[in-house]
Computed example of a mutant assay.
Amino acid sequence: MTGTDSASGRSVPRRLRHHVGVIGLVYLGVCAALLGWALVVTAVDSSGESMAGVIPVLATAPGSLVFLVLPDSAAVFVIAIVLGAGANAAIIGWCTRALRRGGRTS
């Protein structure tokens, strides 16, 4: 596989940019950085009282909050953040396209 989608001939990053837009990609980057920071801070904290995980959860709310009702584990935490960020980025992309379109209906 060469990194392109066989159906459209465009690369995966270009398709992602088309669906979520530049602002959505920036949002995904910020969420990824916050998740990485929270995981590092939590791993380094030996007291077990780190609240660093709250920041990426709030940055990806409300989507991430839905998945946090699942059993408590690091994998569920990461999945909740990833799915919440993905849903929010899709909404950001949709809003960006709608605002760019303006009053046009097509």
Rank of each mutant, 00 (worst) to 15 (best):
M1D: 13
T2A: 12
S11R: 08
S11F: 08
V12T: 11
V12L: 08
R14F: 07
L16K: 00
L16Q: 05
H18C: 07
H19Q: 10
H19T: 12
V20G: 03
G21A: 06
G21V: 10
G24F: 00
G24R: 05
G29E: 11
V30C: 08
A33T: 14
A33D: 04
A38T: 03
T42W: 05
T42I: 00
V44F: 02
D45M: 11
G48C: 07
E49T: 14
S50T: 03
A52N: 09
G53V: 09
V54M: 11
P56W: 00
V57D: 02
T60I: 03
T60D: 03
G63D: 08
S64L: 10
L65W: 12
V66H: 04
L68R: 14
V69T: 14
L70H: 09
S73C: 11
A75V: 14
I79L: 15
L83T: 12
L83E: 10
A85G: 15
G86F: 01
G86M: 00
A87V: 08
A89H: 06
A89S: 15
A90C: 06
I91Q: 05
I91L: 07
G93I: 10
C95L: 11
C95P: 01
T96M: 06
R101S: 04
G102A: 04
R104G: 01
S106Q: 05
S106N: 07
S106L: 06
